[in-house]
């Protein structure tokens, strides 16, 4: 479904991603982890054609550079880390933007399935009741759900989430990850998410990519990647022991 082949990204003199190799197949949920500045969000940007890169990224067997913006949006949905609108759009209006790539006509207002997909996305994210709310009045968590609904309305095959648990309380984190898990059950879909919480990564991810300073520390099945040695190599500290310590305080 997605093949990242020898991809490097430079910002000026600094190489932020170095010769990255990842192959994502349908049904897989890849968790990208690593310390700040490891290049996690840059990888998401490169796949969504937001930054220039060397190497090759293929989406569904076709070079991502050959897609036009609309074609790519129909295959790849992205939930960004930061959301900020300067204007008082309604929740529904923002979610409806997810149908942009499907709209036809001079004024881009033709989309036979649009209404149905928008309502589905709103229902899936628990936003049906908030359709007419001004997005400037939403909490961070509600805002995150609005943009997730927008990405779902795009009906992508690949969903990329950049730190999706940001701004979410524990209840919504659990709901969000369960929702993504359900979404992934439909054949032909895959998920990539950038996460800081390694417990979430281990529990929900089928695969993981561990990065440090733009380089791959380990990539593959979650259990094989999130090991004590690999985490030490990525974070420069004994993450494993620290997490065990933390968890021990929760034993009844």
């Amino acid at each position: 479904m997605l093949n990242v082949d020898n991809v490097s990204v430079r910002y000026g003199d600094k190489e932020v991603l170095s010769r990255l190799q990842v192959r994502v197949e349908p049904g897989q949920w890849w968790m990208i982890a690593g310390p700040n500045g490891a290049g996690k969000s840059t990888l998401i940007s490169a796949i969504s054609q937001g930054v220039p890169y060397t190497g090759k990224i293929a989406v569904l067997g076709r070079d991502a550079r050959d897609y036009n913006a609309g074609e790519l949006a129909r295959q790849v949905g992205v939930l960004s880390q930061h959301h900020a609108s300067g204007y008082a759009f309604t929740v529904r209006e923002v979610i409806a933007l997810g149908r942009y790539a499907y709209r036809t006509g001079f004024f881009k207002n033709g989309d036979a399935e649009g209404e149905e997909r928008i309502l589905e996305a709103m229902a899936a994210t628990g936003l049906t009741e908030l359709g007419e709310r001004n997005i400037l009045t939403l909490s961070g968590g509600e805002m995150q759900r609005v943009f997730l609904a927008q990405a779902l309305a795009q009906q992508p095959a690949l969903l990329m989430l950049d730190e999706p648990a940001n701004h979410l309380d524990l209840i919504y984190q659990r709901q969000l990850f369960a929702l993504i898990g359900d979404w992934l059950k439909t054949p032909g879909r895959a998920v990539i998410s950038v996460v800081h919480d390694l417990m979430l990564a281990k529990h929900y991810g089928t695969h993981a990519l561990l990065l440090r300073e733009g380089k791959t520390i380990a990539a593959g099945e979650t259990a094989a990647v999130l090991t004590r040695q690999n985490l030490f190599a990525a974070y420069g500290m004994d993450v494993f022991a620290w997490m065990q310590d933390l968890l021990s305080e929760w034993r009844e």
Binding site: E71, V78, A101
Partner: peptide, 8 residues
């Protein structure tokens, strides 16, 4: 966000 939803 505009780029993500497919706007050139």
């Amino acid at each position: 966000n505009a780029r993500h939803v497919g706007v050139p």
